[in-house]
């Protein structure tokens, strides 16, 4: 169940137009939007989509996926998403209404992050990772404190 939601927020000349795109790797509908000056793309996915086992892979399979052409208020738009390293790297606008100056959006700020409340675990562990426990600075600080105490 690989479902990618791509929200493209477009700042259009007259008011903003927000299109929510539902995008499936095996060519499913893609909606669209008109660009004028700036395109900001964001992607998110449901937590269950992360099932891969290889260390280098991400949420999605690498490759190029083309969405279907969708009619919008300003004309027809068709986009292509390029997945690289398991993450969306680029969105190409294959078709877009005239007047737009951007035909490719490189997805820079595109991290996909999940959230949860931390919860105490009781399972047995071999080792624990935590911020550095250092004794030397403590020892030095203590010894300087003790030196002062002697004065």
């Amino acid at each position: 169940m690989k479902r990618i939601l791509i929200a493209i927020v477009v700042l259009a000349g007259v008011g903003g137009l927000i299109a929510l795109l539902s995008f499936h790797p095996k060519a499913k509908p893609v909606a669209a939007a008109r660009t004028k000056s700036q395109v900001v793309a964001q992607a998110s996915a449901s937590p269950t989509a992360a099932a891969s086992a290889s260390p280098a892979s991400g949420m999605y399979k690498d490759g190029s996926y083309t969405g279907s052409a969708v009619g919008g208020i300003y004309g027809t738009v068709q986009v292509q998403a390029v997945i690289s390293g398991g993450k969306i790297s680029t969105i190409n606008f294959l078709r877009m209404p005239s007047g737009g100056n951007s035909t490719q959006v490189t997805v820079m700020a595109q991290p996909q992050l999940l959230q949860e409340a931390v919860q105490a675990q009781t399972a047995q562990v071999d080792t624990v990772s935590g911020a550095t426990q250092t004794s030397e600075g403590f020892e030095q600080s203590l010894s300087s404190a003790l030196n002062q105490a002697q004065a």
Binding site: A51, S57, L113, Q115, E116
Partner: peptide, 10 residues
Amino acid sequence: QATFTPGLSQ
């Protein structure tokens, strides 16, 4: 609150 990358699931 914890924020984590989906790939952590591996």
